[in-house]
């Protein structure tokens, strides 16, 4: 897409797959972003999804993240989400109660 609404940048840091999502995620790109995350996560036993730079996320995006977390858990993998509580995504996760069953951090673990 010439003007992608969201970008996923993957990296591997200390044996962990780190996925940084920026831009916006809505109904139009949620499936594609979900695929990108699955692909980028690879076989790493631990995955960190950093949503600090994500400017918009709706309920469909939340569903995608929940599914992704469930899949990783099914494979015995661990998911860490970084989303500051003061940010758009962090406050949405808190609002919907998803912070209760996901491992959400205020900043990337050192």
């Amino acid at each position: 897409m010439s003007d992608p609404l969201a970008q996923v940048i993957a990296a591997e840091e200390r044996g962990r797959s780190v996925l940084r999502v920026s831009g916006e995620v809505d109904m139009s790109n949620v499936a594609a972003v979900g695929e990108q995350l699955r692909a980028a996560a690879g076989d790493a036993p631990s995955v960190l999804v950093d949503l600090t730079e994500l400017g918009f996320l709706d309920s469909q995006g939340l569903r995608m993240i929940q599914r992704f977390a469930d899949e990783l858990a099914g494979h015995g993998k661990k998911l860490i989400i970084v989303a500051p509580a003061s940010g758009v995504v962090g406050s949405l996760l808190a609002l919907t109660g998803m912070d209760k069953n996901l491992d959400i951090r205020q900043s990337p673990p050192q």
Partner: peptide
Amino acid sequence: REPGDRGRGTDIMRKV
């Protein structure tokens, strides 16, 4: 198919 997700969107609208 997905009653939970539909509920989630409504829930968000109510809450914000």
